[in-house]
Write a protein that binds this DNA or RNA. Sequence first.
RNA 1: GGUUCCUUGGCCGAGUGGCUAGGCACCGGUCUGCAAAACCGUCUACGGCGGUUCGAAUCCGCCAGGAACCUCCA
Length: 491
Amino acid sequence: MLHPLQIYNTLKRKKEQFVPLHAPLVGLYVCGPTVYGDAHLGHARPAITFDILFRYLTHLGYKVRYVRNITDVGHLENDADHGEDKIAKKARLEQLEPMEVVQFYSNRYHKALDALNVLSPSIEPHASGHIIEQIRMIKEILDNGFAYESEGSVYFDVEKYNRSHAYGILSGRNIEDMLNTTRELEGQEEKRNSIDFALWKKASPEHIMRWPSPWGDGFPGWHLECSAMSRKYLGDTFDIHGGGMDLIFPHHECEIAQSVAAEGHEAVRYWMHNNMITINGQKMGKSLGNFITLEELFSGSHHLLQQAYSPMTIRFFILQAHYRGTLDFSNEALQSSEKGLSKMLEAFENISKIPASSQSSVNIGDLRKKCNDAMNDDLNTPIAIACLFEGVKYINAALSGEITLSAKDIEELQSVFQTFLIDIFGIKNEVKDGNAAYESFSKAVDILLELRMQAKVNKDWETSDKIRNELTALGFEIKDKKDGFEWKLNK
RNA sequence: GGUUCCUUGGCCGAGUGGCUAGGCACCGGUCUGCAAAACCGUCUACGGCGGUUCGAAUCCGCCAGGAACCUCCA
């Protein structure tokens, strides 16, 4: 099975043909969230980007094992917290058990991702559930001489590693620059070098999240969990590792070093990184305090939001930009996505209303190929969406009788939209899908509009406009046709 | 300061050495009782200055502005 899928490999800094190690199986690992706060718009980017990759690989016929972790331990804070774990810090703040915090935010994360129609990964491992694997990996690194113990902590010896391997190959840095530019931080004295990173960190007496280890009670370093868990579920070597660009250094760089130091070879064949969502040109982020949570976007409750934006609008907005480019948040951009999506969904639903002709007056034959080509070119969703809009044009033109389409072409349009818009892009009709009451209320609206038709026949414009205006105010869009009416509910 | 990257029309965003996506907005038209939707048309850009080339927005150099990473981060 050979598909011409090209993906950009951050490690090689170019697009490469994707050839899985064990086709038709594909191993995919993506860095998930640290669950100490609500997911914001920035978190939606990798979730959706790699959801598309997951869906597209599946569409191509691969059997994908998609692993996306939950980080619930080990994030050191090197500022005023003196090495206190983020989860533990928040826990004390709110007087909750650490695992209660983890559960709370994990649930909310899943809820937001469900709303965005992001498929669940095959495995969602927690770092806290893989302490044994992480300790084992530290031992291997120690045995191979690339780490050292100091005051109950274990550090990775970057300089020693760099003598025989290249530390910095992913991020394009060299060790001399790093030694010169790394900021002086507290708690550095127990390390041989400022750029050494923790594999295991000794827990201070008040530190709640702690596990026993050969080096005393403590907790694993942040970079280790992904190395240990990806190895456990995907093997020593696997196909794709994804995450946000801000993780390239140090997180992914350290992962490479850990794998090589433990196993003697790199684990990941293709590194993929999504770019940031910006707000006023600046990265949206927790530490910058300029983020908008997904829940706020869905409800419109944030001072920067002019209105609520539905999960599908957010999804479509993200897909209208290529995943490797920055994407700037603005109400205007979101609103245009909302309208564009509405137009596309409506066209999709109208395909079945196109009257079939004996032959087509236009050639829609290459639409599917164009969509495929776009996706094969490093998941170029904006191009693929542009192609679908070409299809929208055909659908509308056929409905208004300006072009004719054969039954075969109508079927092909239906199939292309089903495949790309629904199956691969994961767009759904939020009003109809999963709404058990839809049929009933839709009939109720029909009854009202039939009354309006009667009023129109009687030239009772007052009644007719009253019904239309009040429905419009409720979010319905009423369209008069030559012989009847159509409506839809904008959400 | 170091490393990497970006700058496209009113807005968002693709793309690329010659054939100049797409969405949204605006304006004009068709349709309509009036609208809405749809359709047709208009507007047509690649930060600045040089260079390479028959030809550059696309390659190279310089300048300006911006960003990411170097510290937790999607």
